Simulated assay, not measured.
Amino acid sequence: MKEDYYEILGIDKSASAAEIKKAYRKKAIQHHPDKNPGDTKAEEMFKKAAEAYEVLSDPNKKQRYDQYGHAAFDGAGGFGGGSGHMNMDDIFSQFGDIFGGAFGGGGGFSGFGGFGGGGRARVKGSNLRIRVKLTLEEIANGVEKKVKVRRKIQADDVTYKTCPTCNGTGQMMRVTNTILGRMQTATTCNSCGGAGEVIDKRSSEADGQGLVVKEETVSIKIPAGVVEGMQLKVTGKGNEAPGSNGISGDLLVAIEEQEHNTLKREGDNLHFDLYVSIAEAVLGTSKEIDTVTGKVRIKLEEGIQSGKILRLKGKGIPSINGYGQGDLLVHINVWTPKTLNKEQRDFFERMVGDDNFSPNPEKNDKSFFEKVKDMFS
């Protein structure tokens, strides 16, 4: 079972944004690779802290995590969804500024891919966003969707050269005079955007960044129990970044729930309106109803009352948190005919005043408000 993000950072759920950032910086510096060379446990803790901060520092992700736990990001396929397979370059490209001057010139580290004192940044490509429509059956069972995405990738014949403005460092040094003396600060190079390189040659089909648009089929694993508006992330399936050392953006997938013909969803529970005739209600019957796993037949006892709710345990939607499965609530509605022939009318006229047809609720027959209360409890 994955560790709780709050426990990883050593904070509680009421922690403010500033406290979350402070806790992450403390953990990151403690387990930084430069401070713990060759220590795989420290590196793993460094990644876990970054993963926890990536979620808790984002108000939307934090809200989903507080509500659904790690299951909110199952199937998201990468960093930002709690995958646990963090990439060091991703961490430093996104959170390097949090370390300040603790390590090198740009918050990087010397042991991995040139992030040391030079501060050269890895440019990340832009994210893509799509909506995926799911049926209630797909939501209940989980599904793998294949979607076509038009994303920017590097052209095959594009080549790069060292940025002449910053000489490949990705930064420009600026000296300013202050009342405290001369201060030297580093800023991102405007010519290369911090990548340290610019385009040398490109084809006519490529844009100014050396990218071309290509359609690609992407497979998305969607866990059971997702809800309308939930967003999953497929790492690395957004637009590629310019340069030979960039990293791809992500594909953000928003969930859209399609309306079911007969079932209505309420959280993890489902509702089904079952209409029966007066004769069926009086004599009892069996009826076939829809569920998300197929049709099932239920038996209705003699004298069943309109408004009665039958609960089918475990026939609802699985919890996104993995805490069991919701129920299917079958609402009984006795249908009163609007027109009668002479024989039918004569029969009911004879029944007026008959004790068997006079309302006589028992003590255990719940009122409408009690049924609604039970339904939501």
Rank of each mutant, 00 (worst) to 15 (best):
A15R: 00
A15Y: 03
A17Y: 04
A18I: 13
A18R: 08
E19M: 09
E19T: 10
I20D: 12
K21M: 09
K22F: 06
K22Q: 15
A23T: 02
A23W: 10
R25Y: 05
K26E: 15
K26F: 12
K27E: 06
A28C: 14
I29L: 11
I29F: 02
Q30Y: 13
H31M: 14
P33M: 12
P33G: 09
D34L: 00
K35R: 03
K35E: 07
N36W: 06
N36A: 15
P37E: 06
G38W: 08
D39V: 04
D39G: 10
T40S: 10
T40F: 09
T40G: 00
E43D: 08
E43T: 11
E43R: 01
E44I: 14
M45N: 07
F46I: 04
F46Q: 13
K47F: 01
K47N: 10
K47A: 01
K47E: 00
K47S: 01
K48Y: 01
K48D: 14
E51Y: 03
E51F: 09
A52R: 11
A52S: 09
Y53L: 06
Y53T: 01
E54T: 08
E54R: 08
E54A: 05
L56E: 10
S57E: 11
P59W: 13
N60Y: 00
K61A: 15
K61H: 09
Q63C: 10
R64H: 04
Y65A: 15
D66E: 07
D66W: 13
D66F: 05
Q67M: 13
Q67D: 15
Q67E: 14
Y68G: 09
Y68W: 14
Y68Q: 14
G69I: 06
H70I: 02
H70V: 14
A72T: 13
A72W: 12
F73P: 06
G78I: 07
G78L: 15
G80V: 15
G80T: 14
G81D: 06
G82D: 01
S83V: 09
S83M: 01
G84T: 03
G84F: 00
H85T: 00
